[in-house]
């Protein structure tokens, strides 16, 4: 351990930060897309219209039964095939993450919507609001407030899972660290540093989750 070389980290810092930017970009876009589709899936499941609810349930259970790596491989192979032309790894990976995360988010959002008391829906309907007004203005704002801690926890998991883009070589934080590690033969330094960076961000995230839980608990 005595020959732990910090300079390799400092020398490559701009390159590593660029990778970290990719990790955050992927995380944010996947959260946004996953939340949007996840909300629709949750609404479909709670719609009371059996065929729609079944399709949404099947989608959720199907994606939750698969390893993320397999889903990444699927879309890395499928997206160029469907479009008929090669697209960069970024877009196929993004599609994979959004569709995969949507399944997990829909379960959280479903629980959140179910936690809103039914009197709220009745009151909105009594005021003459239609379905979308009831959901958009009354139910979802309360549901999202209640489930913020769980959503944030899922975001931390997603942040960690973006490292799996390694399997298609997209240059996120981990891949950047790995490239430097192999080029300069500094595996110990680079992987330890990568672990430390992920650890710090995730600890900050889970600290935020605890704070939120305390605030909502009172």
């Amino acid at each position: 351990m005595s020959d732990f070389d910090f300079s390799v980290i400092l020398d490559n810092l701009p390159f590593l930060i660029e990778g970290l930017g990719m990790t955050f970009l992927l995380t944010l876009l996947a959260i946004a897309g996953g939340l949007a589709i996840g909300t629709l899936l949750a609404l479909a499941r709670l719609s009371g219209f059996a065929p729609l609810a079944m399709v949404a349930a099947a989608y959720t259970n199907f994606f939750r039964s698969l390893p993320l790596i397999l889903v990444i491989f699927w879309f890395y192979f499928l997206v160029p095939l469907i479009l008929g032309r090669p697209v960069g790894g970024f877009y196929s990976v993004l599609v994979a993450f959004i569709l995969f995360e949507a399944a997990y988010y829909s379960e959280i959002i479903r629980a959140g919507i179910s936690s809103v008391r039914s009197g709220q829906v009745a009151a909105a309907r009594a005021l003459g609001m239609n379905y979308w007004q009831t959901m958009g203005d009354v139910v979802l704002p309360q549901a999202f407030r209640a489930m913020t801690p769980v959503l944030l926890t899922q975001a931390i998991i997603l942040f960690q899972d973006t490292s799996l883009v390694y399997v298609v070589g997209l240059k996120d934080f981990l891949v950047s660290a790995e490239l430097v590690a192999n080029r300069d033969q500094r595996l110990v330094e680079m992987f330890t540093f990568a672990a430390a960076v992920y650890l710090v961000f995730c600890l900050l995230g889970s600290y935020a989750v605890r704070r939120l839980q305390q605030r909502f608990a009172t």
């Binding site: 931390i156 960690q160 899972d161 490292s163 799996l164 390694y166 981990l174 790995e178 992987f191 330890t192 990568a194 672990a195 992920y198 650890l199 995730c202 600890l203 889970s206």
Partner: peptide, 11 residues
């Protein structure tokens, strides 16, 4: 829990 599983594999 706060280090990605893939990074743990590499470690």
């Amino acid at each position: 829990r706060n280090v990605p599983l893939l990074v743990q594999f590499f470690l």
